[in-house]
Each structure stands twice: as structure tokens, then as C-alpha cells.
């Protein structure tokens, strides 16, 4: 095997390893990362029940609550990660290592998907057991939708990571800012079409918007008419996003790294 390919595969595995092990080694994280979405889910389910909403809405909340695990992981453990690494002094080690920075980000994504999948599965399980939404169907189409959504989503996270590299404290605030506003525009807890076609279409640039919309249509066929586009079209758009974001991430990473080097801020901490 080509030595560069082997090196980069090892870099991916090496960066994914601490995430996989770390997510299992720190029990408090597992507890909190499962508990927090369940608390939010419970609050939103009770609202829908207080408003006597149809049972599908309970399913929307459980699904949206579970997917927050991936979004939060992309924000805090992908987008903001290089910034954290800079703060704790690891970034210069990564920069010196004979590997592509994309492999580093790829490894973070693989490890992050593993950890977030555990949290999301637990959230769905607890949500279904506690709140008993409507009967679910699991069409095979759900698998490609879910996988392509994750590739596009983590591709976007990789792109953000390079932008965050340039920032100081703004990185923390930006990640924080992209929680509730994105839950809102991406329709985590209600059909995104309710925001109006153009707003929903604009929000579709965030892969989780169409991913959630497709999953809602597939899991709750009785309300499939509330989807923004037919599932096949949404899958097509997601595939395009899954190709574009990693390419943009590669370009942004090279530019930002170059810019950060020239400004001398690549390893500048405590800004």
C-alpha cells in the first residue's frame, strides 16, 4: 500500500481512537449526554400533549432530540475542535505530524459519529419507552438517508473547523450561537415546511434539515405530506452536500492554515 495512504489511514484511526475510547471511559459524559436530550424531549413532549397534538408529534420530538447528539458533536467536537486543540497546545503537534490535516478531521468525524450514535440510540430508546409515540415503520431507505446525512453533516463540521481555527473566543460563542437558532430553522421538533418554503429551503444548506425531514417522512408515513420535498429529491440534495462539504473543507483548511501561519496566530492561545 502507498505509504501516504497508509500514514493517513493510521492518522484517521489514531484520531478516532481516543474519541471511541474516551466516550466509553468517562461515565459522567455518557450519563449527561443521554440525560440532557431526554430532559428536553420530555419538556417538548409534554407541551405537545398539553396542546393535544396528534401522536406523530411525539415521534418528531424524540427523533429531533436524538439528532441533537450529532449536531452538538459537529459543533463542539468538530467545528470547535481545532480551536480547543490550539488552546491546550496540541495543535502544533498535529501541524508537525506527517499527515494530511483532512485525515485528522476524518478521524475526529469517525470517532464522533461512533460516540454520538450511542447517545442518539439511547435517547431514542428511552424516549420511545417513556413516551410511546406512534407505531414506527423502518423502510430500508432510512439507512442511506441517515448515512448520507451524517457524511454531509460531518463534512460541514470539517469545513467549520478550519474557520474556527482563525478565531479566539469567538469560536466558543459561535458554537453556542448555533444551537437553538439551528434547532429552530432546521425544524428539529416540528416539520420544517411549517417555516415556509423559502426559509426551509435556505435552511436545507444545513444537512440535518433535509435529513430530519426525510427521516420524519419515512418513519411516520401518515404525515409524509408535511415533508418539504419527496424523500428521493432530499436524498439527491444530501448526496450533493456530502460531496461539496468535504471538498470545501479541504480548500478552507488549506487557506485558513496558510492565513493563520502568516498572521502568526496558529498556536496563539488565550485570545
Amino acid at each position: 500500500m502507498n505509504i501516504h495512504l497508509r500514514l493517513n489511514l493510521r492518522a484517521i484511526l489514531g484520531r478516532a481512537y481516543p474519541r471511541v475510547i474516551g466516550s466509553l471511559r468517562e461515565p459522567s459524559w455518557i450519563f449527561f449526554e443521554i440525560l440532557l436530550p431526554v430532559l428536553a424531549i420530555a419538556a417538548y413532549v409534554f407541551i405537545y400533549q398539553a396542546l393535544e397534538a396528534p401522536p406523530e408529534f411525539v415521534g418528531f420530538v424524540i427523533l429531533g432530540g436524538a439528532m441533537t447528539a450529532f449536531w452538538l458533536n459537529v459543533l463542539w467536537s468538530m467545528a470547535a475542535q481545532l480551536y480547543w486543540e490550539k488552546e491546550i497546545g496540541n495543535l502544533q503537534l498535529y501541524m508537525m505530524a506527517p499527515m494530511s490535516r483532512m485525515s485528522l478531521l476524518g478521524g475526529m468525524a469517525v470517532g464522533g459519529i461512533f460516540g454520538s450514535s450511542i447517545h442518539a440510540s439511547a435517547t431514542v430508546l428511552i424516549g420511545v419507552l417513556l413516551f410511546k409515540g406512534p407505531a414506527l415503520v423502518f423502510p430500508l431507505m432510512l439507512i442511506p438517508i441517515f448515512l448520507v446525512t451524517l457524511i454531509a453533516l460531518y463534512g460541514m463540521g470539517m469545513m467549520f473547523a478550519s474557520l474556527y481555527l482563525m478565531w479566539g473566543r469567538e469560536a466558543w460563542h459561535m458554537a453556542s450561537l448555533m444551537e437553538e437558532p439551528i434547532y429552530f430553522v432546521s425544524g428539529f421538533y416540528f416539520p420544517v415546511k411549517a417555516l415556509g418554503f423559502w426559509v426551509a429551503l435556505s435552511a436545507s444548506v444545513i444537512p440535518i434539515t433535509l435529513g430530519l425531514d426525510s427521516m420524519r417522512q419515512l418513519l411516520f408515513p401518515s404525515v409524509a405530506a408535511w415533508g418539504l420535498f419527496p424523500v428521493e429529491i432530499e436524498l439527491g440534495i444530501l448526496v450533493v452536500l456530502a460531496i461539496i462539504f468535504p471538498i470545501m473543507a479541504r480548500i478552507a483548511l488549506a487557506r485558513m492554515e496558510n492565513l493563520a501561519r502568516r498572521r502568526g496566530g496558529l498556536t496563539l492561545r488565550w485570545q
Binding site: Y44, I47, L51, F184
Partner: peptide, 13 residues
């Protein structure tokens, strides 16, 4: 935004 989530949830219902 957090408030608007609730507003939309209500509006959708």
C-alpha cells in the same frame, strides 16, 4: 430562537 421553537410548535399544532 428558543422561544420561536415553542411558537412554531404551537402554530403547527
Amino acid at each position: 430562537a428558543a422561544t420561536m421553537i415553542l411558537v412554531l410548535m404551537y402554530w403547527v399544532v
